[in-house]
Simulated scan of single mutants.
Amino acid sequence: MDACERTTVLAAGATRRVTEMSATGIAVQTAEFVDVARLEGQAVALSHTLTLLAQPYARHPGYRQEWRPR
C-alpha cells in the first residue's frame, strides 16, 4: 500500500467515524472535522501529484490509463 492509498483509507475511516457519531447523536468536535478534511485533502493532492508525475510516460507501452490526470 502506498502513501496515497494509506491516506485515502485513513480519510475514509475518519469520514465514517464522524458520520456515525453524528447519526447517533454523539457530539463531534471541530478538530475531528478538520482531521477529515485534512486527510481528504492529502489524498487528493497525492493522487494529483502521482498522475502528473506519470504523464511524461503516457506513450510508454506499460503506461496505465488510470494514471491519466482527471
Rank of each mutant, 00 (worst) to 15 (best):
A43Q: 02
H60R: 04
L50K: 05
Y63S: 06
V36T: 12
A11I: 01
V18W: 00
M21A: 15
L39D: 02
T19C: 00
G25I: 12
R59T: 10
R70F: 01
A3T: 11
T49S: 04
L52C: 04
R16M: 03
Q55F: 02
A58Y: 09
G13S: 13
T51A: 07
C4A: 10
Q42C: 08
T19N: 09
R59Q: 10
F33M: 14
I26P: 00
F33N: 15
E66D: 05
T8K: 03
R38G: 05
M1W: 04
G41R: 13
A43V: 03
G41W: 09
Q55S: 05
E66S: 07
W67C: 01
M1N: 04
T19A: 09
A54L: 05
S22C: 11
I26D: 12
T19G: 03
L52K: 12
H60M: 05
Y63A: 07
T7I: 02
V9R: 14
L50P: 07
V36H: 03
V36Q: 07
L52D: 09
H48M: 11
G62T: 13
R6F: 06
P56Y: 10
V36W: 00
L10G: 06
A11M: 03
I26S: 10
L10S: 15
A31Y: 04
G25R: 12
V9N: 03
R38C: 08
E5P: 00
R38S: 12
R38A: 14
E20K: 12
G25E: 14
A23T: 15
W67Q: 06
E32Q: 15
T51C: 10
T8C: 01
Y63M: 02
E5C: 06
R68L: 05
A58I: 07
A45L: 12
A14P: 02
D35I: 03
A37L: 13
D2P: 13
M1D: 08
D2E: 10
A58T: 11
V28C: 07
R68K: 02
T8W: 01
T30L: 10
R16D: 02
H48F: 09
A12Y: 00
A11Q: 01
L50M: 06
S47E: 10
A43E: 01
T19P: 00
T51K: 14
D2N: 15
E20I: 02
V18F: 00
M21V: 00
H48R: 15
M21G: 12
R16Y: 02
Q65A: 00
R59K: 07
V44N: 09
G41T: 14
R64N: 03
R16S: 06
H48N: 12
L39E: 05
D2Y: 05
D35N: 13
A23E: 15
Q55T: 13
E32Y: 08
V34R: 11
H48E: 14
L53D: 11
V34D: 11
T24I: 09
A43C: 04
P61T: 12
A31N: 14
A14S: 14
A37D: 13
